[in-house]
Design a protein around this nucleic acid. Structure first.
Length: 258
DNA sequence: ATGGCTGCTTTGAGCAGA
């Protein structure tokens, strides 16, 4: 089974690349972030034509998430599209059950800067997410949490740790959240394997950051223990960051023997 | 030192992303 996540930074602009990528990689499940499109305008027919069922929690301009499931898999049930007890107009979460597999897609707030209101909102969102994940793990032994976490967990996930020290995406409080989620029993699938150093999932559009590999690893797939035990690979598809009109994020793709 | 790109928006300069 192949499960992936991709922040597409506007589904409208990225649709041709998404369709090509789906036909190339053929994941069983794909979590999308930053679709930036409301539900009425979602390109349902174009995505379904690739052989996927599609679910979305959309919002125009900002945020917006979607969940694509290969049509040969069971129908999605027990959908969740908000953090319980956290009143939030922003569409940043979408999950559901596919048979016994539970998949939750996250678009964690960016936070902008550690002295901003948006950073406070990020930490509040994450605290609500911690409680949610604890509850999800209790209910669903086979849990995948995939998305744009907007957290670089360690210095080795940062091209220039000195420049990023203490900055948003790398602050102690954000990294503590990531460790909290690991401590609940969710493994960072990328770190289950030897990986090339300086592997990242996001590169700024500016300053030739991609050709210089000035990136961060902020997109993640977390796995509960029963899934981590059967995970056979995790890679970041940096080819998707190349060429015309790329997203600034690359997809993360996980293989599970299931 | 600054902004440097991209996508979006009550279409045009400003916000947000990370």
């Amino acid at each position: 089974m192949r499960i992936a996540t991709w922040n597409v930074n506007s589904l409208t602009v990225r649709l041709p690349r998404l369709v090509a990528w789906l036909n190339d990689v053929r994941p069983d499940v794909l979590c999308l972030q930053e679709t930036k499109i409301d539900d009425a305008r979602f390109p349902r027919a174009e995505v379904e034509a690739t052989g996927y069922r599609v679910h979305f929690a959309g919002q125009r301009t900002y945020n917006g998430v979607a969940l694509l499931v290969r049509e040969s898999l069971p129908e999605l049930t027990d959908r969740v599209d908000a953090l319980p007890g956290f009143d939030d107009p922003q569409k940043r979460l979408l999950g559901g059950s596919i048979g016994g597999l539970r998949v939750v897609g996250f678009y964690v707030p960016n936070g902008q800067a550690i002295d901003s209101d948006k950073y406070r909102y990020k930490l509040d969102w994450c605290a609500a997410a911690t409680a949610f994940l604890r509850s999800e793990l209790a209910r669903h032994p086979e849990l995948v949490v995939a998305g744009d976490f907007n957290i670089a967990p360690e210095d080795r996930d940062v091209h220039d740790p000195a420049a990023w020290a203490g900055q948003v995406l790398c602050s102690d409080a954000e990294r503590a959240v990531f460790r909290d989620w690991q401590a609940l029993g969710l493994a960072d699938s990328f770190r289950l394997f030897d990986q090339p150093p300086l592997t990242f999932s996001w590169w700024d559009y500016r300053q030739l950051a991609f050709p210089k590999n000035h990136g961060l690893r902020i997109d993640h797939v977390l796995l509960s223990a029963p899934l981590a035990a059967r995970c056979t690979g995790c890679r970041i598809d940096r080819n998707a960051r190349k060429g015309e009109k790329p997203s600034d994020h690359a997809p993360v793709v996980v293989e599970i023997d299931r």
